[in-house]
Protein backbone atom coordinates (compact mmCIF):
# COMPACT_ATOMS: atom_id res chain seq x y z
CA UNK A 1 0.00 0.00 0.00
CA UNK A 2 1.07 3.53 -0.70
CA UNK A 3 0.12 5.22 2.53
CA UNK A 4 3.74 5.86 3.52
CA UNK A 5 4.39 7.91 0.45
CA UNK A 6 1.21 9.84 0.89
CA UNK A 7 2.28 11.03 4.32
CA UNK A 8 5.26 12.78 2.81
CA UNK A 9 3.10 14.81 0.54
CA UNK A 10 1.59 18.15 1.44
CA UNK A 11 -1.77 18.62 3.01
CA UNK A 12 -3.11 20.17 -0.16
CA UNK A 13 -2.57 16.93 -2.01
CA UNK A 14 -4.44 15.21 0.80
CA UNK A 15 -7.29 17.58 0.20
CA UNK A 16 -7.02 16.76 -3.43
CA UNK A 17 -7.25 13.09 -2.68
CA UNK A 18 -10.21 13.63 -0.42
CA UNK A 19 -11.95 15.63 -3.10
CA UNK A 20 -11.39 12.86 -5.61
CA UNK A 21 -12.69 10.07 -3.50
CA UNK A 22 -15.36 11.40 -1.20
CA UNK A 23 -18.15 11.37 -3.82
CA UNK A 24 -17.35 7.73 -4.38
CA UNK A 25 -17.48 6.89 -0.69
CA UNK A 26 -20.72 8.78 -0.46
CA UNK A 27 -22.11 6.56 -3.21
CA UNK A 28 -21.17 3.53 -1.18
CA UNK A 29 -22.75 4.82 2.00
CA UNK A 30 -26.30 3.41 1.62
CA UNK A 31 -24.93 -0.05 0.85
CA UNK A 32 -22.42 0.16 3.67
CA UNK A 33 -25.08 1.16 6.18
CA UNK A 34 -27.27 -1.68 5.05
CA UNK A 35 -24.51 -4.25 5.31
CA UNK A 36 -23.61 -3.06 8.78
CA UNK A 37 -27.18 -3.27 10.00
CA UNK A 38 -28.24 -6.39 8.22
CA UNK A 39 -25.02 -8.39 8.34
CA UNK A 40 -22.50 -7.08 10.84
CA UNK A 41 -24.62 -6.14 13.84
CA UNK A 42 -26.35 -9.55 14.07
CA UNK A 43 -22.92 -11.16 13.81
CA UNK A 44 -22.58 -10.52 17.54
CA UNK A 45 -24.84 -13.54 17.69
CA UNK A 46 -21.92 -15.79 16.87
CA UNK A 47 -21.24 -15.83 20.62
CA UNK A 48 -24.35 -18.00 20.90
CA UNK A 49 -22.28 -20.89 19.55
CA UNK A 50 -20.13 -20.75 22.65
CA UNK A 51 -22.89 -20.28 25.19
CA UNK A 52 -25.57 -22.18 26.96
CA UNK A 53 -28.26 -19.65 26.22
CA UNK A 54 -30.64 -18.81 29.02
CA UNK A 55 -33.13 -16.17 27.96
CA UNK A 56 -33.88 -15.28 31.55
CA UNK A 57 -30.36 -13.92 31.76
CA UNK A 58 -30.24 -12.70 28.19
CA UNK A 59 -27.99 -13.93 25.43
CA UNK A 60 -24.88 -11.98 26.37
CA UNK A 61 -25.06 -12.80 30.07
CA UNK A 62 -25.56 -16.53 29.55
CA UNK A 63 -22.86 -18.96 30.64
CA UNK A 64 -19.92 -19.71 28.39
CA UNK A 65 -19.55 -23.39 27.56
CA UNK A 66 -16.47 -23.31 25.35
CA UNK A 67 -16.69 -25.74 22.47
CA UNK A 68 -19.31 -28.02 23.95
CA UNK A 69 -21.90 -26.99 21.38
CA UNK A 70 -19.58 -28.16 18.63
CA UNK A 71 -19.11 -31.68 19.95
CA UNK A 72 -22.13 -33.16 18.22
CA UNK A 73 -20.65 -32.36 14.83
CA UNK A 74 -17.70 -34.67 15.37
CA UNK A 75 -18.71 -37.25 17.94
CA UNK A 76 -21.16 -39.23 15.86
CA UNK A 77 -20.23 -42.04 13.52
CA UNK A 78 -21.95 -40.10 10.74
CA UNK A 79 -19.43 -37.28 10.93
CA UNK A 80 -17.26 -38.77 8.21
CA UNK A 81 -20.14 -39.57 5.86
CA UNK A 82 -21.74 -36.14 6.08
CA UNK A 83 -18.45 -34.33 5.62
CA UNK A 84 -17.49 -36.50 2.66
CA UNK A 85 -20.91 -36.12 1.01
CA UNK A 86 -21.01 -32.37 1.50
CA UNK A 87 -17.55 -31.87 0.05
CA UNK A 88 -17.81 -34.23 -2.89
CA UNK A 89 -21.23 -33.01 -4.00
CA UNK A 90 -20.14 -29.39 -3.81
CA UNK A 91 -16.98 -30.04 -5.81
CA UNK A 92 -18.97 -31.78 -8.53
CA UNK A 93 -21.58 -29.01 -8.47
CA UNK A 94 -18.98 -26.28 -8.85
CA UNK A 95 -17.24 -27.98 -11.76
CA UNK A 96 -20.41 -28.95 -13.57
CA UNK A 97 -22.22 -25.67 -13.11
CA UNK A 98 -19.19 -23.69 -14.26
CA UNK A 99 -18.58 -25.83 -17.32
CA UNK A 100 -22.19 -26.10 -18.45
CA UNK A 101 -22.93 -22.50 -17.50
CA UNK A 102 -20.19 -21.23 -19.76
CA UNK A 103 -21.10 -23.63 -22.55
CA UNK A 104 -24.77 -22.68 -22.57
CA UNK A 105 -23.93 -18.98 -22.28
CA UNK A 106 -21.70 -19.16 -25.34
CA UNK A 107 -24.32 -21.06 -27.28
CA UNK A 108 -27.08 -18.65 -26.32
CA UNK A 109 -25.04 -15.59 -27.22
CA UNK A 110 -24.06 -17.05 -30.57
CA UNK A 111 -27.47 -18.21 -31.68
CA UNK A 112 -28.47 -16.01 -34.59
CA UNK A 113 -32.22 -16.44 -34.41
CA UNK A 114 -33.65 -13.76 -32.13
CA UNK A 115 -36.71 -15.79 -31.21
CA UNK A 116 -34.80 -18.90 -30.25
CA UNK A 117 -32.39 -16.80 -28.25
CA UNK A 118 -35.26 -15.38 -26.22
CA UNK A 119 -36.67 -18.84 -25.73
CA UNK A 120 -33.39 -20.24 -24.42
CA UNK A 121 -32.80 -17.29 -22.17
CA UNK A 122 -36.19 -17.69 -20.57
CA UNK A 123 -35.80 -21.44 -20.32
CA UNK A 124 -32.59 -21.46 -18.30
CA UNK A 125 -34.22 -19.16 -15.76
CA UNK A 126 -37.38 -21.20 -15.39
CA UNK A 127 -36.13 -23.64 -12.77
CA UNK A 128 -35.42 -20.68 -10.47
CA UNK A 129 -39.13 -20.36 -10.12
CA UNK A 130 -39.68 -23.78 -8.67
CA UNK A 131 -39.17 -24.36 -4.97
CA UNK A 132 -37.32 -27.46 -3.87
CA UNK A 133 -40.47 -28.81 -2.27
CA UNK A 134 -42.09 -28.89 -5.67
CA UNK A 135 -38.95 -30.25 -7.31
CA UNK A 136 -39.19 -33.01 -4.72
CA UNK A 137 -42.70 -33.81 -5.90
CA UNK A 138 -41.65 -33.88 -9.51
CA UNK A 139 -38.73 -36.19 -8.84
CA UNK A 140 -41.16 -38.38 -6.94
CA UNK A 141 -43.49 -38.28 -9.93
CA UNK A 142 -40.73 -39.90 -11.95
CA UNK A 143 -39.22 -42.25 -9.40
CA UNK A 144 -42.09 -43.23 -7.13
CA UNK A 145 -41.71 -46.96 -6.74
CA UNK A 146 -45.38 -47.68 -7.19
CA UNK A 147 -46.77 -45.03 -9.49
CA UNK A 148 -43.72 -43.27 -10.90
CA UNK A 149 -43.33 -42.66 -14.59
CA UNK A 150 -40.02 -44.52 -14.70
CA UNK A 151 -41.22 -47.68 -13.02
CA UNK A 152 -44.63 -47.67 -14.59
CA UNK A 153 -43.92 -46.61 -18.15
CA UNK A 154 -40.26 -46.38 -19.07
CA UNK A 155 -38.79 -49.52 -17.51
CA UNK A 156 -41.60 -51.86 -18.63
CA UNK A 157 -41.24 -50.45 -22.14
CA UNK A 158 -37.59 -51.43 -22.03
CA UNK A 159 -38.53 -54.80 -20.62
CA UNK A 160 -36.78 -54.11 -17.32
CA UNK A 161 -37.82 -54.85 -13.76
CA UNK A 162 -38.98 -51.91 -11.64
CA UNK A 163 -36.32 -50.42 -9.39
CA UNK A 164 -36.78 -49.50 -5.73
CA UNK A 165 -35.43 -46.01 -6.18
CA UNK A 166 -36.11 -44.72 -2.70
CA UNK A 167 -34.51 -47.77 -1.05
CA UNK A 168 -31.28 -47.86 -3.04
CA UNK A 169 -28.63 -45.24 -2.20
CA UNK A 170 -26.50 -45.94 -5.27
CA UNK A 171 -28.79 -44.13 -7.70
CA UNK A 172 -28.94 -40.91 -5.74
CA UNK A 173 -25.64 -39.20 -6.49
CA UNK A 174 -26.63 -39.15 -10.15
CA UNK A 175 -30.18 -37.98 -9.45
CA UNK A 176 -29.08 -35.24 -7.05
CA UNK A 177 -26.36 -34.00 -9.37
CA UNK A 178 -28.81 -33.86 -12.23
CA UNK A 179 -31.42 -32.02 -10.18
CA UNK A 180 -28.87 -29.54 -8.88
CA UNK A 181 -27.60 -28.80 -12.35
CA UNK A 182 -31.11 -28.54 -13.69
CA UNK A 183 -32.02 -26.02 -11.03
CA UNK A 184 -28.75 -24.16 -10.61
CA UNK A 185 -27.03 -23.86 -13.95
CA UNK A 186 -29.07 -20.85 -14.98
CA UNK A 187 -27.59 -18.63 -12.30
CA UNK A 188 -24.01 -18.76 -13.51
CA UNK A 189 -25.17 -18.94 -17.09
CA UNK A 190 -26.92 -15.60 -16.83
CA UNK A 191 -23.81 -13.98 -15.34
CA UNK A 192 -21.71 -15.36 -18.17
CA UNK A 193 -24.22 -14.18 -20.75
CA UNK A 194 -23.97 -10.66 -19.42
CA UNK A 195 -20.18 -10.92 -19.38
CA UNK A 196 -20.08 -12.13 -22.96
CA UNK A 197 -22.45 -9.37 -23.98
CA UNK A 198 -20.01 -6.92 -22.47
CA UNK A 199 -17.16 -8.01 -24.71
CA UNK A 200 -16.18 -5.44 -27.29
CA UNK A 201 -17.62 -6.76 -30.59
CA UNK A 202 -14.71 -5.29 -32.54
CA UNK A 203 -12.51 -8.02 -31.07
CA UNK A 204 -14.57 -10.65 -32.85
CA UNK A 205 -14.68 -8.66 -36.05
CA UNK A 206 -10.92 -8.47 -36.05
CA UNK A 207 -10.61 -12.18 -35.41
CA UNK A 208 -13.09 -12.88 -38.19
CA UNK A 209 -10.97 -10.86 -40.57
CA UNK A 210 -7.93 -12.86 -39.50
CA UNK A 211 -9.85 -15.98 -40.43
CA UNK A 212 -10.04 -17.40 -36.91
CA UNK A 213 -12.64 -20.19 -36.56
CA UNK A 214 -15.36 -20.26 -33.94
CA UNK A 215 -13.43 -22.51 -31.59
CA UNK A 216 -10.42 -20.27 -31.80
CA UNK A 217 -12.52 -17.19 -31.12
CA UNK A 218 -13.97 -18.86 -28.02
CA UNK A 219 -10.57 -19.91 -26.75
CA UNK A 220 -8.78 -16.66 -27.51
CA UNK A 221 -11.43 -14.03 -26.90
CA UNK A 222 -14.48 -15.26 -25.02
CA UNK A 223 -12.88 -17.37 -22.33
CA UNK A 224 -10.12 -14.91 -21.38
CA UNK A 225 -12.66 -12.09 -21.28
CA UNK A 226 -15.02 -13.83 -18.88
CA UNK A 227 -12.28 -15.42 -16.79
CA UNK A 228 -12.52 -12.82 -14.00
CA UNK A 229 -16.23 -13.54 -13.69
CA UNK A 230 -15.56 -17.26 -13.57
CA UNK A 231 -12.98 -16.78 -10.85
CA UNK A 232 -15.24 -14.55 -8.77
CA UNK A 233 -18.13 -16.97 -9.03
CA UNK A 234 -15.96 -19.99 -8.22
CA UNK A 235 -14.33 -18.34 -5.24
CA UNK A 236 -17.74 -17.41 -3.93
CA UNK A 237 -18.85 -21.03 -4.24
CA UNK A 238 -15.71 -22.29 -2.54
CA UNK A 239 -16.56 -20.14 0.45
CA UNK A 240 -19.81 -22.02 0.84
CA UNK A 241 -18.41 -25.46 0.24
CA UNK A 242 -19.46 -26.78 3.63
CA UNK A 243 -22.99 -25.57 3.15
CA UNK A 244 -25.49 -27.34 1.00
CA UNK A 245 -28.89 -26.67 -0.41
CA UNK A 246 -31.07 -28.07 2.35
CA UNK A 247 -34.07 -28.54 0.08
CA UNK A 248 -32.09 -30.54 -2.43
CA UNK A 249 -30.86 -33.04 0.10
CA UNK A 250 -33.96 -33.16 2.27
CA UNK A 251 -37.02 -32.65 0.10
CA UNK A 252 -35.82 -34.36 -3.05
CA UNK A 253 -34.90 -37.76 -1.49
CA UNK A 254 -38.03 -37.37 0.66
CA UNK A 255 -36.06 -37.87 3.83
CA UNK A 256 -35.82 -41.58 3.04
CA UNK A 257 -33.63 -43.12 5.74
CA UNK A 258 -32.27 -45.84 3.54
CA UNK A 259 -30.63 -43.28 1.29
CA UNK A 260 -28.64 -41.49 3.99
CA UNK A 261 -25.30 -42.95 2.98
CA UNK A 262 -25.43 -40.88 -0.20
CA UNK A 263 -27.88 -38.10 0.70
CA UNK A 264 -26.96 -37.03 4.22
CA UNK A 265 -25.02 -33.77 4.34
CA UNK A 266 -24.09 -31.44 7.19
CA UNK A 267 -27.19 -29.30 6.86
CA UNK A 268 -29.62 -32.22 6.86
CA UNK A 269 -27.80 -33.90 9.72
CA UNK A 270 -28.03 -30.77 11.82
CA UNK A 271 -31.67 -30.30 10.95
CA UNK A 272 -32.66 -33.85 11.80
CA UNK A 273 -30.69 -33.87 15.02
CA UNK A 274 -31.90 -30.53 16.28
CA UNK A 275 -35.44 -30.46 14.92
CA UNK A 276 -36.85 -31.90 18.12
CA UNK A 277 -34.39 -30.21 20.42
CA UNK A 278 -34.55 -26.57 19.39
CA UNK A 279 -31.02 -26.02 20.65
CA UNK A 280 -30.00 -22.58 19.43
CA UNK A 281 -26.43 -22.97 20.69
CA UNK A 282 -25.81 -26.12 18.73
CA UNK A 283 -27.37 -24.89 15.52
CA UNK A 284 -25.32 -21.73 15.78
CA UNK A 285 -22.21 -23.85 16.33
CA UNK A 286 -22.91 -25.79 13.16
CA UNK A 287 -23.09 -22.54 11.21
CA UNK A 288 -19.85 -21.26 12.65
CA UNK A 289 -18.11 -24.52 11.80
CA UNK A 290 -19.36 -24.48 8.20
CA UNK A 291 -18.40 -20.84 7.76
CA UNK A 292 -14.98 -21.29 9.26
CA UNK A 293 -14.01 -24.13 6.94
CA UNK A 294 -15.30 -22.20 3.94
CA UNK A 295 -13.40 -19.14 5.11
CA UNK A 296 -10.09 -20.96 5.37
CA UNK A 297 -10.56 -22.63 2.01
CA UNK A 298 -11.49 -19.43 0.26
CA UNK A 299 -8.50 -17.60 1.72
CA UNK A 300 -6.27 -20.36 0.39
CA UNK A 301 -7.92 -20.33 -3.01
CA UNK A 302 -7.69 -16.56 -3.19
CA UNK A 303 -4.02 -16.72 -2.26
CA UNK A 304 -3.37 -19.12 -5.10
CA UNK A 305 -5.28 -16.94 -7.55
CA UNK A 306 -3.41 -13.82 -6.47
CA UNK A 307 -0.10 -15.64 -6.94
CA UNK A 308 -1.05 -16.49 -10.51
CA UNK A 309 -2.70 -13.25 -11.55
CA UNK A 310 -3.02 -10.55 -8.97
CA UNK A 311 -5.78 -8.53 -10.60
CA UNK A 312 -8.14 -11.49 -10.66
CA UNK A 313 -7.99 -12.16 -6.95
CA UNK A 314 -11.19 -11.46 -5.08
CA UNK A 315 -9.56 -9.20 -2.49
Amino acid sequence: MKEEKVVAKTTSSRMQKFKTWYPLFLMMLPGAVYIIINNYLPMLGIVIAFKNVDFKKGILASDWVGFKNFEFLFSSSDAFVITRNTLLYNIVFIILNTFLGILFAIFICDVTSKHLKKLYQSAILFPFLMSMVIVGYIVFAFFSMQSGIVNKTILPALGREPIFWYNEPKYWPAILIFVNTWKGVGYGCLIYISAINGIDPSLYEAAELDGAGKLKQILNITLPSILPNVITLTLLSVGRIFYSDFGLFYQVPRNSGMLYSTTNVIDTYVYRGLMQQNNIGMSSAAGVYQSLVGFVLVLLANLIVSKVSKENALF
Binding site: E71, F72, M258, Y260, R272, Q276, N279
Partner: peptide, 18 residues
Protein backbone atom coordinates in the same frame (compact mmCIF):
# COMPACT_ATOMS: atom_id res chain seq x y z
CA UNK B 1 -27.13 -35.17 26.82
CA UNK B 2 -28.01 -33.04 23.82
CA UNK B 3 -24.94 -34.20 21.88
CA UNK B 4 -26.01 -37.81 22.26
CA UNK B 5 -29.63 -37.00 21.47
CA UNK B 6 -28.66 -35.30 18.24
CA UNK B 7 -26.86 -38.44 17.13
CA UNK B 8 -29.77 -40.59 18.29
CA UNK B 9 -32.34 -38.60 16.36
CA UNK B 10 -30.18 -38.93 13.29
CA UNK B 11 -30.05 -42.73 13.62
CA UNK B 12 -33.75 -42.85 14.45
CA UNK B 13 -34.62 -40.89 11.31
CA UNK B 14 -32.40 -43.13 9.25
CA UNK B 15 -34.15 -46.36 10.21
CA UNK B 16 -37.51 -45.68 11.76
CA UNK B 17 -39.65 -45.05 8.71
CA UNK B 18 -38.37 -48.05 6.83
Amino acid sequence: LSTELTALYSVYNEYMNS
